[in-house]
């Protein structure tokens, strides 16, 4: 097919696929490059594993010490505090080794001075449950700036941003392939899909209340138009007990919540 562009990179500990169509390849290469450099910059802020990142350094120094942080990181941490409340504590970027404590119990943020202090020695912040949403939010701005009409941006097929439509249809056709069936079809245009659950059959989400890895075989798929909210909600629903799901879901705007069968 003409004017079809695809590239893939290793980014944010997974495979990033960029699919664009409708314009010249050289133009798309510019978009690709912009996305790539933006993600690199975000990783230097949010990566828990990169010793050059702001978060890595923060995790190293913020216990019992008011530590200066960038506006970007401050904004994100404040956003995570809000989401922690909206999910009754089940979305928690500071859950490491802090069983049963909510995010606002673990850190103290002073927005007026752009500083943060960790209240316990074993607190570490981890943006794994929201980082790809933050990245996709930035990518969304890039797509708008470059007037990209048709696109798929996918992090590991679990965080997928769609724009426009498939070259041979009026939408992007996906189906939620869960543990037990292929579920229903998703007809996506300008959407965000976030899927949380087992990754290659390996638990990777920690229940902030119990401190244990979630080993339930369920997976959950959120479809909305907000990359960050979608990531937060799918992560929280995997961690939260089922009797709280409706309460959490009501706090968000979304089009679809799909579950795999357990």
């Amino acid at each position: 097919m003409k004017n079809f562009y695809h590239s893939s990179h290793f980014a944010m500990n997974t495979r990033l696929d960029i699919i664009l169509w409708g314009c010249e390849e050289s133009y798309y290469a510019q978009v690709d490059n912009k996305i790539h450099t933006t993600i690199k910059a975000l990783e230097l802020i949010y990566s828990r594993f990169d010793n050059k990142s702001e978060l890595y350094k923060l995790n190293d120094t913020a216990y019992n010490n008011y530590t200066k942080l960038s506006n970007t990181l401050l904004k994100s941490i404040n956003q995570c505090l809000e989401y922690s409340v909206k999910t009754t504590g089940y979305f928690n970027i500071g859950f490491l080794n802090n069983q049963g404590m909510e995010l606002h119990d673990l850190i103290e943020v002073r927005s007026h001075s752009n500083t943060i202090k960790y209240l316990y020695p074993n607190v570490k912040l981890d943006f794994g449950g929201i980082g790809k949403g933050i990245a996709l939010k930035h990518i969304e701005l890039i797509l708008n700036a470059y007037n990209i009409e048709n696109a798929i941006i996918s992090f590991g097929e679990s965080s997928v941003l769609t724009r426009g439509k498939h070259p041979h249809g009026s939408y992007w056709p996906f189906s939620f392939q869960d543990q037990h069936n292929f579920g229903e079809s998703l007809k996506l245009n300008n959407h965000m899909v976030s899927i949380s659950g087992l990754h290659n059959n390996t638990p990777h989400i920690i229940n902030p209340e119990s401190g244990k890895l979630v080993s339930d075989s369920r997976a959950v798929c959120i479809v909305n138009n907000d990359p960050i909210a979608a990531e937060v909600l799918s992560t929280a629903l995997i961690a939260a007990p089922q009797n709280l799901h409706q309460q959490i879901i009501k706090s968000f705007t979304q089009e679809k919540v799909l579950y795999s069968k357990s």
Partner: peptide, 23 residues
């Protein structure tokens, strides 16, 4: 799923790409 989607586009096929499955 993304690989399937790419193959489908190149072959002028329009069908669901399956995402999210682990096994």
């Amino acid at each position: 799923g993304i690989l399937q989607l790419i193959n489908d586009i190149e072959k002028d096929v329009f069908r669901d790409a399956q995402i999210g499955g682990a096994s």
